[in-house]
Structure formats: structure tokens, C-alpha cells
Design a protein around this nucleic acid. Structure first.
Lengths: 234, 234
DNA sequence: CGCCCTTTTGAAGAAAATCAAGGGCAGTGG
DNA sequence: CCACTGCCCTTGATTTTCTTCAAAAGGGCG
């Protein structure tokens, strides 16, 4: 069901009535598949759809003049993007499939219509934007201590994966490699490797070939001062 | 006239019809004054208004657990904030008056009504949000070379001040002190001082007691690779 | 097995933080 | 008119953090 995860995310942002839910479910979804390493949306593209990640992970990124990459956000199942288009603007950054993705999409006029007729849906879209913005601010706020920055990213991913039910006993799969993590935090992969080693030594987080184990979530949170409020999850 | 600068900013985002303009002008504005160093809006506050800076400068900021401050955006005359409230959310960061400010405000229901009846105004509000978001991404993208980061901030301020007509021959007033600049870029004020000295020595930008002189804007742009597209100015 | 991709490790160097002291300037009050 | 005070900026010396460069070590997979 294409709309299910999307609905879950919307419900975390507002209280949907049954009519709202029915409306979202009735939207005409189509699906595209994007393989790991390929762009879901590219710079300059003017999407005619709103996109929702159904399975897999994606990331927003931009390239610097010197060729280095900065990841500015991670998208998990249920997250959407391309709402840009609601304002008729072109993509000023790209979106990359970190793992093979199934992306659901709705034609923009459809979702605009829904937003216009259903104030709660409109509100949800606004809140989703606010959540994205708050996340960007949280990333900007990220301390310059690399080890804390990494810990906080892990906490964020944990909180979001937990919300969508993708975690079993503090043990989960993260398709990001150390270069992705570095690009998301403005660090080199070499340094990420060293800091992950420290986190492991400290017993806070064990990240080995895409499997992440957190023995004590509270300890990790405390170590980096993570507060999930900016994610707007309920 | 409270609405004038606001209209100018909206016009940079969309093409307003005369009816749209008339609607914005007819909105019931009130004015509040905030002195340099005081908060315009504080964390946790649930604004009942949309705010527009009329004169002065303001900045969004958050405090870290260790007490350090991160400025996540600068607001100049014509910029607005508190649109948060459109979604009924509380402020998760604060807004500080960098210089004495005159802030215009409209009650939220008024602006919501305008947005609902005038699709172009609604679109403008969305685009304004997108511009803010794009700016956050641009800040996140900011290279880790401190001198380039500072140069880029100067370029951004120049572009935005230029747009609102606040610049005469590459010479303008910046009420930010070096600590503000550091907080906006994640640097210490000591390092900012050193880098400003370098920029001065390189003949790229001369910043002395709140007065900024840029001998050759193109040279400065080239030095830091600044591209103003993310500001959505036209 | 051999290849590719990712991670790990080491050593050296660069960038920025930290600590500490001094200097300029504006505003205040004698 | 001058001294005093507070704020901000500047400068130097030192230390920390992270990058860079380089090489080797694991896996996963055809």
C-alpha cells in the first residue's frame, strides 16, 4: 500500500480525520524504482510530482565547486520531497538513492487539490516543511566535536527508524557508508572511521558493515545531548 | 508604510497582481519596537502574528547545551518570520534584535485568509519558506575554509542589502560584531578577527567598526565562489 | 582466486580553538 | 577637559582537532 507510510508520517504531524485519511488513500499513486547510487531527482529538474520514499533510503545533496559533496538530509520511508514544486520552483539540489528505493509519487495538481479542500492536509504539508527546516537548523547547530556530531546523527536515525518500526532491539541496518556520514557532517571518511572506533571503544555505538548496534540508547543520547524535538514525531 | 518592503520581498518571489498588492496593503499592521540585544521572539513562544522586519536587523539563533550560541539566519528589512504559526507550532529557536528593530506584524488569521483567497499570495509564502530552506542548505554547504565562509556571508549580506536598496557604492553598515559573525559560521570571534584581517590584506573586503567596504565585488565573489541563486531574489 | 570497494591505521601537516594579555574607542562622570 | 570604564577588537603562543597522504587489510562477489 503506497499511502500507508505516508499516512503514518502525516499523522505524526497533525490529527487526521477519517475523511482526511480517505482522501490521502484515494490519491492516485504511481511507483518508480531507483537503484542505489542513482539520482531520484537532479538539480534543475522541475518535478511534476510529489515524491514519497516507500522503501530504501535517499539523501539530499549538493556538490561544491571543488567537487566535494555535502549531504543536507536523509530521507527514510514515509518521508516526502519535491513539495518544492508546490511553489513551481526547480530543484536547487539533488536527491540520491543511498539504497535501492521504491518511490511513490502523486501528480502535483492532485495533492494541491487535496491541500485546498482539506485544511488539515494543508497544515500537515506545512508542518512537514517546518520539520525539514528544523532539521536543517539542528544540523547547522551540530557541535564541531566530530564524535558528538556522529553520535547525534546516529540518534536521529535511530529515532526516525524507530518511529517507522524499522528497529529490533537497538539493532538496525544503515545503508550509509563512512563517506556518506562524512559528507553529511562535513568530515572526511578517515576521521569518521576513527570516531566510530572511539564510539565503539566507549561502548556507545557499534557500527560494522552497515549494521548498527546501540547497547544503551540513553547513554548515547546523554553523551551527545540529543533532543529529538526537532523531528516533529509523536 | 508597513507593507512596502514586505511587498517588495513578495514581488521578488512571485508576480503579484494589483489585486494581490491591494490585499497585502489592506492587511491590518501593527508595529512593535525591539531594542538591540533583546529577543523579538523566544523559544517556546507560540506567536499569534506573522512578523516582518521593517527597520533594523534580526537573527535566528539557538543555544547549545554548553551555552554557546549558533546563529542560523539573518533577517533584514522586508524579511518575515513566525509563519511557523501558520502550522500552529511553537518557536523551537529564538529571534534576536541585532540592531534596534521596528517589527511589523499581522494577526495570523488575517494572513491565512489572504493566503486562502489569493493563490498567488499563498504561493509567495511557500516560496519564502523555500528560500529560507535553501539558505539553510547554503549555510550547511559553506566550506570549512573559514575565510571563504566569511567572504560568502559578506556576499550574501551584500546581495540582500543591495536588493532592498541599502547600499551606496559598495559601502554599507553591518551591525554584526565579530562574535555574531563567528556564531553564524561556527567560528570563534578570535578567528573571525584574523580572517577579516586577511580579507583586508587581500584587498577583498574591509570591515572596520561596523562599516563594510568592498572594493571589487566580482573579485570577492570569485574568491569564495558565491552564487546568489538560493536567495530567490529577482 | 582475484578484484573492487570500504575500512583501518600511521605519520605529518594545516586549520581553528583556547588561553591570555594588551589596545582602541565611545560613553560617563568627575 | 580628562580620567575611568566597558566593550570590542587585535595579537601572540600553545594545543587540539581534523585533514591529507599513503599504504595495507578486510570482506563480498563474480
Amino acid at each position: 500500500m503506497a499511502a500507508t507510510q505516508f499516512l503514518k508520517r502525516l499523522s505524526s504531524l497533525v490529527d487526521l480525520s477519517e475523511a482526511d485519511e480517505a482522501e490521502v488513500r484515494s490519491l492516485p499513486w504511481s511507483v518508480v524504482n531507483v537503484r542505489r547510487g542513482r539520482d531520484v531527482l537532479s538539480v534543475g529538474h522541475k518535478p511534476g510530482f510529489a515524491y514519497v520514499v516507500q522503501t530504501g533510503w535517499a539523501a539530499r545533496y549538493s556538490l561544491r565547486k571543488n567537487g566535494s559533496r555535502r549531504i543536507t538530509g536523509v530521507m527514510l520511508p514515509g518521508d516526502f520531497c519535491g513539495i518544492h514544486a508546490v511553489a513551481g520552483a526547480a530543484m536547487d539540489h539533488a536527491i540520491l538513492a543511498i539504497a535501492d528505493c521504491e518511490i511513490g509519487r502523486i501528480e502535483l495538481p492532485e495533492i494541491e487539490k487535496a491541500a485546498q479542500s482539506f485544511p488539515t492536509i494543508n497544515k500537515a504539508l506545512w508542518r512537514a516543511k517546518l520539520a525539514e527546516e528544523a532539521t536543517l537548523r539542528a544540523w547547522l547547530l551540530n557541535s564541531r566535536e566530530a564524535i558528538q556530531a556522529i553520535a547525534r546523527l546516529i540518534c536521529e536515525l535511530h529515532a526516525r527508524l524507530s518511529f517507522i518500526g524499522a528497529i529490533s532491539d537497538g539493532h538496525f541496518t544503515v545503508p550509509l557508508n563512512q563517506e556518506h556520514i562524512g559528507d553529511a557532517l562535513g568530515l572526511t571518511s578517515v576521521h569518521v572511521s576513527r570516531m566510530l572506533k572511539e564510539l565503539r571503544a566507549a561502548g556507545l555505538a557499534d557500527y560494522q558493515r552497515q549494521e548498527l548496534l546501540i547497547p544503551d540508547m540513553d547513554a548515547l543520547r546523554a553523551a551527545c545531548g540529543f533532543d529529538p524535538a526537532y523531528l516533529y514525531l509523536r
